[in-house]
Amino acid sequence: MPPLSPLTPPSSSPSSRARVVAALRAAGCVFAEDEAELILAAADTPDELADLVDRRVAGLPLEQVLGWAEFRGLRVAVEPGVFVPRRRTEFLVERALAHVPDASVVVDLCCGSGAVGAALAAGLGPVELHAADLDPAAVRCARRNVRAAGGRVHTGDLFEALPGDLRGRVDILAANVPYVPTGEVGLLPAEAREHESLLALDGGADGLDVLRRVAAQASGWLAPGGCLLIETSERQAPSAVEAFERGGLTARLAVSEEWFAHVVIGTTS
Protein backbone atom coordinates (compact mmCIF):
# COMPACT_ATOMS: atom_id res chain seq x y z
CA MET A 1 0.00 0.00 0.00
CA PRO A 2 1.44 3.45 -0.88
CA PRO A 3 2.41 5.54 2.18
CA LEU A 4 -0.15 7.99 3.52
CA SER A 5 0.66 11.59 4.32
CA PRO A 6 1.83 11.78 7.97
CA LEU A 7 -0.17 14.98 8.33
CA THR A 8 -3.49 13.25 7.63
CA PRO A 9 -5.16 11.13 10.36
CA PRO A 10 -5.91 7.77 8.67
CA SER A 11 -9.54 7.56 9.80
CA SER A 12 -10.48 11.04 8.56
CA SER A 13 -9.19 10.82 5.00
CA PRO A 14 -11.68 9.67 2.33
CA SER A 15 -8.79 8.94 0.00
CA SER A 16 -7.17 6.76 2.64
CA ARG A 17 -10.38 4.78 3.04
CA ALA A 18 -10.72 4.31 -0.69
CA ARG A 19 -7.15 3.07 -0.98
CA VAL A 20 -7.60 0.66 1.90
CA VAL A 21 -10.81 -0.73 0.39
CA ALA A 22 -9.12 -1.11 -2.99
CA ALA A 23 -6.14 -2.95 -1.47
CA LEU A 24 -8.38 -5.32 0.46
CA ARG A 25 -10.65 -5.95 -2.49
CA ALA A 26 -7.67 -6.72 -4.72
CA ALA A 27 -6.51 -9.26 -2.12
CA GLY A 28 -9.86 -11.05 -2.33
CA CYS A 29 -11.48 -9.78 0.87
CA VAL A 30 -15.21 -10.24 0.28
CA PHE A 31 -16.24 -7.65 2.89
CA ALA A 32 -13.57 -5.12 1.98
CA GLU A 33 -15.61 -2.06 3.00
CA ASP A 34 -16.48 -3.42 6.44
CA GLU A 35 -12.93 -4.61 7.05
CA ALA A 36 -11.55 -1.24 5.97
CA GLU A 37 -13.64 0.54 8.60
CA LEU A 38 -12.33 -1.74 11.35
CA ILE A 39 -8.72 -1.42 10.23
CA LEU A 40 -8.96 2.36 9.92
CA ALA A 41 -10.42 2.57 13.43
CA ALA A 42 -7.57 0.46 14.80
CA ALA A 43 -4.75 2.53 13.27
CA ASP A 44 -3.43 5.62 15.04
CA THR A 45 -0.86 6.60 12.43
CA PRO A 46 -0.39 6.22 8.67
CA ASP A 47 2.51 3.83 9.23
CA GLU A 48 0.38 1.67 11.53
CA LEU A 49 -2.43 1.70 8.99
CA ALA A 50 -0.09 0.59 6.22
CA ASP A 51 1.23 -2.23 8.42
CA LEU A 52 -2.27 -3.48 9.28
CA VAL A 53 -3.35 -3.43 5.65
CA ASP A 54 -0.18 -5.22 4.54
CA ARG A 55 -0.76 -7.97 7.11
CA ARG A 56 -4.38 -8.44 6.01
CA VAL A 57 -3.42 -8.45 2.32
CA ALA A 58 -0.80 -11.11 3.11
CA GLY A 59 -3.62 -13.38 4.33
CA LEU A 60 -3.57 -12.96 8.09
CA PRO A 61 -7.10 -13.36 9.50
CA LEU A 62 -8.73 -10.01 10.16
CA GLU A 63 -9.18 -10.87 13.83
CA GLN A 64 -5.47 -11.52 14.23
CA VAL A 65 -4.70 -8.27 12.40
CA LEU A 66 -6.93 -6.33 14.78
CA GLY A 67 -5.97 -8.35 17.84
CA TRP A 68 -9.57 -9.14 18.74
CA ALA A 69 -12.73 -10.89 17.60
CA GLU A 70 -16.33 -10.12 18.42
CA PHE A 71 -18.04 -13.05 20.12
CA ARG A 72 -21.50 -12.83 21.65
CA GLY A 73 -21.09 -9.12 22.33
CA LEU A 74 -17.60 -9.46 23.80
CA ARG A 75 -14.35 -8.22 22.36
CA VAL A 76 -12.16 -11.32 22.68
CA ALA A 77 -8.39 -10.95 22.40
CA VAL A 78 -6.88 -13.09 19.62
CA GLU A 79 -3.14 -13.64 19.28
CA PRO A 80 -1.21 -14.85 16.21
CA GLY A 81 -1.55 -18.60 15.69
CA VAL A 82 -4.55 -18.94 18.01
CA PHE A 83 -7.86 -20.31 16.70
CA VAL A 84 -10.24 -17.47 15.84
CA PRO A 85 -13.65 -17.98 17.50
CA ARG A 86 -16.39 -18.55 14.93
CA ARG A 87 -19.66 -16.72 15.25
CA ARG A 88 -21.60 -19.98 14.76
CA THR A 89 -20.18 -21.20 18.09
CA GLU A 90 -22.36 -18.59 19.79
CA PHE A 91 -25.13 -21.16 19.27
CA LEU A 92 -23.29 -23.59 21.56
CA VAL A 93 -23.14 -20.90 24.24
CA GLU A 94 -26.83 -20.13 23.85
CA ARG A 95 -27.77 -23.81 24.20
CA ALA A 96 -25.60 -24.16 27.30
CA LEU A 97 -27.18 -21.14 28.97
CA ALA A 98 -30.66 -22.40 28.13
CA HIS A 99 -29.93 -25.90 29.42
CA VAL A 100 -28.28 -24.96 32.74
CA PRO A 101 -29.20 -21.31 33.42
CA ASP A 102 -28.12 -21.57 37.06
CA ALA A 103 -24.73 -23.22 36.41
CA SER A 104 -22.07 -22.44 38.98
CA VAL A 105 -19.12 -24.51 37.66
CA VAL A 106 -18.12 -24.16 34.00
CA VAL A 107 -15.32 -25.81 32.03
CA ASP A 108 -14.19 -24.65 28.58
CA LEU A 109 -12.22 -27.59 27.15
CA CYS A 110 -10.08 -27.12 24.01
CA CYS A 111 -10.58 -23.47 24.91
CA GLY A 112 -8.46 -21.75 22.26
CA SER A 113 -8.84 -18.04 22.98
CA GLY A 114 -11.21 -18.77 25.87
CA ALA A 115 -14.10 -17.10 24.04
CA VAL A 116 -16.67 -19.76 24.99
CA GLY A 117 -15.75 -19.68 28.66
CA ALA A 118 -15.75 -15.88 28.75
CA ALA A 119 -19.14 -15.73 27.03
CA LEU A 120 -20.63 -18.31 29.39
CA ALA A 121 -19.36 -16.40 32.42
CA ALA A 122 -20.80 -13.17 31.00
CA GLY A 123 -24.18 -14.84 30.55
CA LEU A 124 -24.27 -16.57 33.91
CA GLY A 125 -22.76 -14.06 36.31
CA PRO A 126 -20.29 -15.18 39.01
CA VAL A 127 -19.15 -18.75 38.31
CA GLU A 128 -16.21 -21.00 38.98
CA LEU A 129 -14.66 -21.00 35.50
CA HIS A 130 -11.92 -23.32 34.26
CA ALA A 131 -10.47 -23.52 30.76
CA ALA A 132 -7.85 -25.83 29.27
CA ASP A 133 -5.89 -26.27 26.08
CA LEU A 134 -2.85 -28.18 24.88
CA ASP A 135 -1.44 -25.21 22.95
CA PRO A 136 0.64 -22.82 25.13
CA ALA A 137 -0.21 -19.87 22.85
CA ALA A 138 -3.92 -20.55 23.32
CA VAL A 139 -3.50 -20.85 27.08
CA ARG A 140 -1.69 -17.50 27.19
CA CYS A 141 -4.43 -15.87 25.13
CA ALA A 142 -7.26 -17.46 27.12
CA ARG A 143 -5.83 -16.15 30.38
CA ARG A 144 -6.30 -12.62 29.06
CA ASN A 145 -9.91 -13.30 28.14
CA VAL A 146 -11.14 -15.06 31.28
CA ARG A 147 -9.27 -12.91 33.78
CA ALA A 148 -12.21 -10.56 34.31
CA ALA A 149 -14.40 -13.53 35.25
CA GLY A 150 -11.81 -14.89 37.68
CA GLY A 151 -11.25 -17.89 35.43
CA ARG A 152 -8.33 -20.27 35.68
CA VAL A 153 -6.65 -21.67 32.57
CA HIS A 154 -4.74 -24.96 32.57
CA THR A 155 -2.27 -26.42 30.09
CA GLY A 156 -2.63 -30.05 29.12
CA ASP A 157 -4.43 -32.76 27.19
CA LEU A 158 -8.19 -32.58 27.76
CA PHE A 159 -9.22 -33.77 31.25
CA GLU A 160 -5.63 -34.40 32.30
CA ALA A 161 -5.22 -30.64 32.54
CA LEU A 162 -8.08 -30.13 35.01
CA PRO A 163 -7.90 -30.12 38.81
CA GLY A 164 -9.13 -33.44 40.19
CA ASP A 165 -11.59 -31.76 42.55
CA LEU A 166 -13.75 -30.82 39.56
CA ARG A 167 -14.87 -34.43 39.14
CA GLY A 168 -18.61 -34.69 39.57
CA ARG A 169 -19.04 -30.91 39.94
CA VAL A 170 -19.15 -29.51 36.40
CA ASP A 171 -22.50 -28.02 35.40
CA ILE A 172 -21.50 -26.96 31.88
CA LEU A 173 -18.71 -28.75 30.03
CA ALA A 174 -18.22 -26.98 26.70
CA ALA A 175 -15.69 -28.61 24.38
CA ASN A 176 -15.12 -26.87 21.06
CA VAL A 177 -12.96 -29.74 19.82
CA PRO A 178 -11.23 -29.89 16.42
CA TYR A 179 -13.49 -31.75 13.98
CA VAL A 180 -12.01 -31.31 10.51
CA PRO A 181 -10.99 -34.71 9.04
CA THR A 182 -7.23 -34.88 8.48
CA GLY A 183 -7.66 -35.30 4.74
CA GLU A 184 -9.77 -32.14 4.51
CA VAL A 185 -7.53 -29.74 6.44
CA GLY A 186 -5.84 -28.79 3.18
CA LEU A 187 -9.21 -27.72 1.80
CA LEU A 188 -9.75 -25.11 4.50
CA PRO A 189 -9.41 -21.41 3.65
CA ALA A 190 -5.79 -20.26 3.76
CA GLU A 191 -6.62 -17.99 6.70
CA ALA A 192 -7.31 -21.05 8.83
CA ARG A 193 -4.81 -23.63 7.59
CA GLU A 194 -1.87 -21.20 7.45
CA HIS A 195 -2.51 -19.03 10.49
CA GLU A 196 -4.28 -21.18 13.08
CA SER A 197 -2.86 -24.06 15.09
CA LEU A 198 -3.27 -27.49 13.49
CA LEU A 199 -4.17 -28.77 16.95
CA ALA A 200 -7.33 -26.66 16.78
CA LEU A 201 -8.37 -27.93 13.35
CA ASP A 202 -7.36 -31.57 12.77
CA GLY A 203 -9.83 -34.02 14.30
CA GLY A 204 -8.28 -37.21 12.94
CA ALA A 205 -9.31 -39.52 10.11
CA ASP A 206 -13.06 -38.85 10.33
CA GLY A 207 -12.78 -35.67 12.40
CA LEU A 208 -14.17 -37.24 15.57
CA ASP A 209 -11.09 -38.52 17.39
CA VAL A 210 -11.06 -35.80 20.04
CA LEU A 211 -14.84 -35.75 20.37
CA ARG A 212 -14.85 -39.47 21.15
CA ARG A 213 -12.19 -39.03 23.83
CA VAL A 214 -14.16 -36.23 25.49
CA ALA A 215 -17.47 -38.09 25.29
CA ALA A 216 -15.94 -41.23 26.79
CA GLN A 217 -14.80 -39.43 29.95
CA ALA A 218 -17.27 -36.59 30.41
CA SER A 219 -19.83 -38.38 32.60
CA GLY A 220 -17.32 -38.69 35.45
CA TRP A 221 -16.84 -34.92 35.51
CA LEU A 222 -20.44 -33.76 35.18
CA ALA A 223 -22.54 -32.77 38.16
CA PRO A 224 -26.12 -34.08 38.41
CA GLY A 225 -28.08 -32.15 35.81
CA GLY A 226 -24.91 -31.00 34.10
CA CYS A 227 -24.31 -31.21 30.37
CA LEU A 228 -21.61 -31.68 27.78
CA LEU A 229 -21.85 -29.62 24.59
CA ILE A 230 -19.72 -30.14 21.48
CA GLU A 231 -20.00 -28.51 18.08
CA THR A 232 -19.79 -30.78 15.05
CA SER A 233 -20.82 -30.84 11.39
CA GLU A 234 -24.11 -31.99 9.88
CA ARG A 235 -22.37 -34.98 8.28
CA GLN A 236 -20.69 -36.05 11.50
CA ALA A 237 -23.66 -35.46 13.80
CA PRO A 238 -25.09 -39.04 13.83
CA SER A 239 -21.70 -40.53 14.70
CA ALA A 240 -21.16 -37.84 17.32
CA VAL A 241 -24.46 -38.66 18.99
CA GLU A 242 -23.48 -42.35 19.04
CA ALA A 243 -20.17 -41.45 20.72
CA PHE A 244 -22.03 -39.55 23.44
CA GLU A 245 -24.34 -42.50 24.04
CA ARG A 246 -21.41 -44.95 24.22
CA GLY A 247 -19.99 -42.67 26.91
CA GLY A 248 -23.11 -43.18 29.00
CA LEU A 249 -24.75 -39.88 28.14
CA THR A 250 -28.26 -39.15 26.97
CA ALA A 251 -27.66 -37.23 23.76
CA ARG A 252 -29.63 -34.97 21.47
CA LEU A 253 -28.72 -32.77 18.54
CA ALA A 254 -29.48 -29.05 18.46
CA VAL A 255 -29.40 -27.30 15.08
CA SER A 256 -29.38 -23.64 14.09
CA GLU A 257 -30.41 -23.06 10.49
CA GLU A 258 -29.35 -19.42 10.78
CA TRP A 259 -25.76 -20.21 11.72
CA PHE A 260 -25.64 -23.66 10.09
CA ALA A 261 -24.45 -24.88 13.48
CA HIS A 262 -24.81 -28.38 14.93
CA VAL A 263 -24.28 -28.99 18.64
CA VAL A 264 -24.54 -32.33 20.40
CA ILE A 265 -25.79 -32.02 23.98
CA GLY A 266 -25.22 -34.84 26.44
CA THR A 267 -26.51 -35.29 29.97
CA THR A 268 -26.02 -37.98 32.57
CA SER A 269 -28.90 -40.42 32.94
Rank of each mutant, 00 (worst) to 15 (best):
R152K: 11
W221V: 09
G151E: 02
L211H: 08
V146G: 02
H195Q: 10
D165Q: 15
V177Y: 00
V177N: 01
A205N: 04
W221D: 09
L162A: 08
R193H: 08
L162S: 06
A175K: 00
I172R: 01
E194R: 15
R144G: 06
L188E: 09
R212E: 14
Y179D: 03
G186S: 11
G156D: 05
V180S: 04
L158M: 13
R152C: 05
V170K: 08
L199A: 15
T155C: 13
G207W: 00
D157S: 14
A205E: 15
A216Q: 12
P181W: 04
L211G: 03
G183K: 08
F159I: 07
A205V: 13
G164Y: 02
A223I: 11
L201A: 10
A218Q: 06
V185H: 11
R167Q: 15
V210Q: 00
A161G: 08
D206T: 07
D209V: 04
V170R: 06
P163K: 12
V210E: 00
G204E: 01
P224Y: 13
L188M: 13
L158I: 09
G150T: 05
D209G: 03
H195F: 15
G164C: 12
T155K: 08
E160G: 14
V180M: 07
V170M: 09
R169H: 14
R167N: 11
P189M: 07
A215D: 06
A200M: 07
A190Q: 14
L208S: 00
G203P: 02
L166F: 12
P178Q: 06
A218R: 01
G186M: 12
L187R: 15
A190S: 15
D209K: 02
R167V: 11
S219G: 14
P163C: 12
A148M: 06
D165C: 13
V170Y: 09
A175E: 03
L158H: 01
N145Q: 11
R213W: 05
E196F: 02
A175M: 07
E191Y: 04
L173V: 13
G150E: 03
D209M: 01
P189H: 12
A223K: 10
V185S: 05
V210A: 01
G225H: 10
A216Y: 07
L188Y: 07
G151K: 05
A223F: 12
T182K: 05
L208C: 03
A149F: 06
A216F: 05
G225A: 12
G183F: 05
G204N: 01
P178T: 06
A175P: 04
G207M: 03
L198M: 14
E184M: 15
L222V: 13
V214Q: 03
P181A: 12
A200N: 03
V153F: 07
A205K: 09
T155G: 13
L158E: 03
L199Y: 07
L166E: 09
R169V: 12
L187N: 15
V180D: 02
A161P: 06
A215Q: 00
G156W: 03
L208M: 09
D165M: 10
A175L: 10
L166Y: 11
V177R: 00
D206S: 06
P181F: 07
